[in-house]
């Protein structure tokens, strides 16, 4: 008979912020974070980024090259910022799928989009980025904005995204990254570990989730590492654009 404690000890670990946790527990812990912040997610995004997240997302849409009639998958779509814009661009002949592993975020996103009259060409799917429940060669564009760092097996997720993309389709990964300027990095560290948890405490009464946010950003691969991961997963012509001094980077790869 196998000893469960021994089995747990043998299980590979992954990072959850600065902690090491068994791989099987990361998704659950990330889910707890997002259940906690879902209700005030948009407000916190505006407060913590000073509204800059809207510009980062705008830039993502500009680079996506989405056209009328395209099929778009917005993974970790959360409250639906990108989905809303994509829905308007692809029109009634296109389709946008807002996928999120977290049902609280998905509900907030769905309600918000419906309240704004976005319906008809949008579908909401609760899905794990590592095992996307879509056919091969199905989407023209796949985006994942501020979601990849929360995925346990990033390589599996990238391969899954490659699988569902049509040949010639584009993957856009918008994610926090590493600032290029050491001085900016220092200021950003102070901001992340002092102001972000404090703002989280004051607005959502949850400083831990925002401490996790800051820690998970530091544990996420930097620009070049993520680019190499995308190339390894099978993407071609992988490029990235630094925004706000490299605090955020947008990676773009094409399925051959």
């Amino acid at each position: 008979m196998s000893d469960p404690r021994k089995a747990q000890e043998q299980e590979p670990t992954t990072h959850f912020g600065f902690q090491d946790v068994p791989e099987s527990q990361k998704a659950e812990k990330v889910a707890e974070v997002f259940h906690s912040v879902a209700a005030k997610y948009d407000l916190m995004n505006d407060v913590l980024s000073g509204g800059l997240h809207r510009l980062w997302k705008r830039f993502t849409i500009e680079l996506s090259g989405v056209r009328t009639g395209n099929r778009v998958l917005d993974i970790a779509g959360g409250t639906g910022d990108l989905t809303r814009k994509f829905s308007s661009i692809v029109g009634p002949t296109g389709q946008v799928v807002l996928a999120d592993i977290n049902d609280s975020m998905l509900k907030v996103g769905r309600d918000r989009l419906l309240d704004k009259g976005v319906a008809g060409n949008v579908q909401f799917v609760q899905a794990d980025a590592e095992k996307l429940p879509f056919p091969d060669n199905h989407f023209d564009v796949v985006t994942i904005a501020f979601g990849l760092r929360n995925v346990t097996h990033k390589e599996d997720a990238l391969r899954s995204m490659l699988r569902v993309l049509k040949p010639g389709g584009r993957l856009l990964v918008l994610e926090f990254s590493k600032p290029g300027n050491p001085l900016l990095a220092k200021v950003y560290d102070t901001y992340s570990f002092s102001f972000m948890p404090l703002a989280g405490k004051l607005i959502t009464n949850d400083s831990e989730s925002y401490r996790y946010l800051a820690e998970s950003i530091r544990m996420h691969p930097d620009q070049e590492t993520l680019k190499a991961m995308m190339v390894d997963a099978g993407f071609e012509r992988v490029t990235y654009h630094n925004m706000t001094g490299g605090i955020v980077a947008l990676h773009r790869g094409i399925k051959p």
Partner: peptide, 9 residues
């Protein structure tokens, strides 16, 4: 109207 500085299409 949506205005963009670049559009990859």
């Amino acid at each position: 109207l949506q205005l963009a500085a670049q559009w990859h299409a």
